[in-house]
Design a protein around this nucleic acid. Structure first.
Length: 412
RNA sequence: CGGGGCAUAGUGUAAUGGCAGCACGAGUCCCUUGGGAGGAUUUACUCUGGGUUCGAAUCCCAGUGCCCCGACCA
């Protein structure tokens, strides 16, 4: 993509009132725009990142048998009354339509998915089944904060699994833990599985937490046995497993999985008939990942003083191509154009800084801020040296590489 | 939902109760290309509603919004 045509622009100054790093960097670099507290627009580059994260999540969910659907964001009051969450879910957005009919904006989808599954699941032969969606969630948080980490409207993947009994759920639950670990590591994050307090309907849950100084959760980790527990449920000073010493860390919750049991199945009469002709309650699990929060968490972890450092797996473009002196030097211009086409032909994502009226300092500062993993510079100097300068965003090492080797090198 | 801070041009900031200014940006022109360069010229601003005052960006009251701390986070 030509940078001169890019809708968003970087800002010279960091937003002065933002403290959280992901908010500062994503706003300054023009990845997102804030409409009101906790509500963001995703601009062209930001949406690319979000989509890349979604694709990783999709791939891992599909791999373990998840089937993607899309449920409505709007749902009728009656469904929420059935589960007791019309009144019981503090952050639920409620609204009135014509004829004073009342609705909720989806804050979670048990109230939609359970009656949906009830229409199709009748027999033990129909189980297990896993349905997921990637959708905008709405929660009227009392205090949105920290950029993308806690919003009133955010992108979430929620999967619901349905089983004939607890043993089957337990078996699947382990698969999800493995899939979640893959997702986070593919996104460049080291997420720890943390035991945590559950909500109203389950005694405990498992959270995936990324340790960073700007997290809002506190996690106790055992130095000996790799047990991690949320402060919510545990506040002693020794590991309950092995009496090892505990370390306290701040962390961001990027995923949360629950065993729901039959609570929602009972509310909606979701049952199946077993081999003996007996009617049984379906057992459910629920598995969430905050897609937009994940994007914020990645920035919290991957950055330096100059800007963002995107992991290659989710970067909007792999390469930032920057000519220097292209308006004066025809060869610089033509070689850069040629390389741009060659990279595109190989499907290597490339942002071409073709802005002619911009000083080199500004271009390089933009490149650092925007954070593409590979920076390529072509100038009279690099052409004299036989090629193009290659620098990775996460290192200070600079090397000159001939054009014929370059494309091949970048394909790796 | 309790507490604190802040609110001036598109952005960032200045102005004892007395002519709202500067920088960046944006427009036009010139110049410039290895770390936000320079010149000429144009452009645009006091969150909302009340009050005090001869006079309010400035003081007072209310509201709204943003950020931060806490509570909350199925």
């Amino acid at each position: 993509m030509y940078q001169s045509t890019l809708f968003s622009k970087t800002k010279k100054e960091t937003p002065p009132d933002e403290v959280s790093l992901n908010a500062q960097l994503l706003l300054q670099a023009g990845y997102v725009d804030k409409l009101v507290a906790g509500v963001y627009s995703y601009l062209p580059l930001g949406l690319k990142v979000l989509n890349n994260i979604q694709e990783i999540v999709r791939a891992e969910m599909n791999k373990i048998g998840g089937q993607e659907i899309l449920m409505p964001a709007l749902s009728p009051k009656a469904n929420w009354q059935k589960t007791g969450r019309w009144e019981g879910f503090d952050v639920l957005f409620k609204l009135k339509g014509s004829g004073d009919k009342e609705y909720a904006l989806g804050a979670s989808h048990e109230e939609v998915v359970t009656p949906l599954v009830d229409k199709y699941v009748n027999s033990y032969r129909d189980l297990p089944v896993s349905l997921y969606q990637i959708q905008t969630k709405f929660r009227d948080e009392p205090r949105p904060k920290s950029g993308l980490l806690r919003g009133r409207e955010f992108s979430m993947k929620d999967l619901y699994s349905f089983h004939r009994d607890q043993a089957d759920l337990d078996k699947y639950y382990e698969k999800f833990i493995a899939a979640y670990k893959n997702i986070f590591s593919r996104c460049g994050l080291d997420a720890k599985l943390v035991k945590s307090g559950g909500g109203t309907f389950s005694k405990f849950s498992d959270e995936f937490q990324v340790f960073t100084p700007h997290g809002e959760d506190i996690v106790f980790s055992c130095s000996k046995c790799d047990l991690h527990q949320n402060k919510e449920i545990f506040a002693g000073d020794k590991c309950p497993n092995c009496q090892g010493k505990l370390e306290e860390n701040k962390a961001i919750e990027v995923g949360n999985i629950f065993k729901l049991g039959s609570k929602y199945a009972k509310d909606f009469g979701l049952t199946y008939t077993d081999e003996k002709g007996q009617e049984q309650d379906v057992v459910m699990g629920c598995y969430g990942i905050g897609i937009s929060r994940l994007m914020g968490a990645i920035v919290e972890v991957h950055h330096d003083e100059a800007g963002i450092i995107w992991p290659a797996s989710i970067t909007p473009f792999k390469v930032h191509l920057i000519p220097i002196g292209a308006d004066k030097n025809d060869e610089v211009k033509s070689e850069t154009d040629k390389l741009y086409k060659a990279l595109q032909a190989k499907n290597i994502g490339v942002l071409y800084d073709d802005r002619l009226d911009m000083g080199v300092g500004q271009k390089l500062a933009d490149a650092d801020l925007l954070g593409m993993p590979v920076r390529l510079i072509i100038s009279a100097k690099t052409l004299e040296n036989g090629g193009c300068e290659v620098k990775r965003r996460d290192s200070d090492k600079v090397e000159i590489m001939p054009f014929d080797k370059l494309v091949e090198h970048l394909e790796k």
